[in-house]
Simulated assay, not measured.
Amino acid sequence: MTASSTPLIQAAELQAALGAPAPPVLLDVRWQLGGPPGAEEYAAGHLPGAHYLDLDRELAAPPGPAGRHPLPDPKLLGEALRRAGVSVARPVVVYDAGPATSAARAWWLLRWAGHPDVRVLDGGLAAWRAAGLPETTEPPAAGDGDFEPAAGGLPTVDADGAAELARTGLLLDARAAERYRGEVEPVDPRAGHIPGAVSAPTTDNLGTDGRFRPAAELAARFGALGAAGGPVGVYCGSGVTAAHELLALEVAGLPGGALYPGSWSEWSGQPDRPAATGAQPG
């Protein structure tokens, strides 16, 4: 599989790459808030050769004051990735069941950790199945990778940095609009959003087929939200869905956005941090 200018890969292209003499490492990272466990779905059927990684245990640190899905310890992340066969010289493809939320988290983490070639299966397992491509219940042999994470390959901001971006740049809130407005809050301590943040639900990154919208459409979307070459940050509930927004920004040709890993789960747990509610002005 050759290097690509897009962080996405289509099902047919992935099938061809998996049949090549030097196939990519394939990671299944199925996960959804509240379950069922992705490991059970993986055991019932997955792409041939795919290794399963657990988002809660291997792609995040334990929940706490820093949020529900803090960034993992690079050493522990590296151990999990090497067990899955991840090596610096081999490309990696990640997928989930759709809509690429947890796959985007894995893509972002690998890039943050310094891996140079990571792509997301566009449309996830649903697109693979829609193309009539094969699955298996057989897990692959344990991998023997050599990848050593070096944190800092992609930018992050803390709570103060997110607040500053909301004032002087562009801070996108990737959650559903009703959570941004503070009408509901099913998980975190308080409802609302970071003052000055702009609502940008990740559902608007996708077409009706569950795949990412074309680059030009995404560029127009983010341009209308205020992305015009200045600094951009993204947050969500716990730093997972925000990675989907950053992936969409890269597809749109607008890389370089910063992730606020703690996101609303950290911010709302700090009583001295203000919370805004209602729709954004304008």
Rank of each mutant, 00 (worst) to 15 (best):
M1I: 05
Q10W: 08
L18W: 00
P24R: 01
L27H: 01
R30K: 09
W31E: 03
P36R: 05
P37Y: 00
A50G: 14
Y52H: 14
R57V: 08
L59V: 01
P63W: 15
R68S: 11
H69Q: 10
P74K: 02
P74T: 02
L77V: 03
A80K: 07
R83C: 07
V86L: 04
A89S: 15
R90N: 03
P91I: 00
Y95P: 10
Y95C: 07
P99S: 11
A100V: 11
T101W: 09
S102R: 03
V118L: 07
V120C: 14
A127L: 08
R129W: 00
A131P: 05
T136K: 10
E138Q: 12
P140M: 00
A141N: 01
G145W: 00
E148V: 15
P149L: 02
A151P: 15
G153F: 02
P155C: 01
A159L: 11
E178L: 07
E178Y: 04
Y180V: 07
R181V: 12
E183S: 08
E183K: 03
D188W: 08
I194H: 05
I194P: 08
G196L: 07
V198T: 15
N205V: 02
G207Q: 03
R211S: 12
P214Y: 06
L218P: 11
F222L: 02
V232H: 03
S238F: 01
G239L: 05
T241G: 10
A243D: 08
A243K: 02
L247M: 09
L249T: 00
E250H: 03
G253L: 09
G257W: 05
A258L: 07
G262F: 00
T277C: 06
T277E: 11
T277I: 11
A279L: 14
Q280W: 12
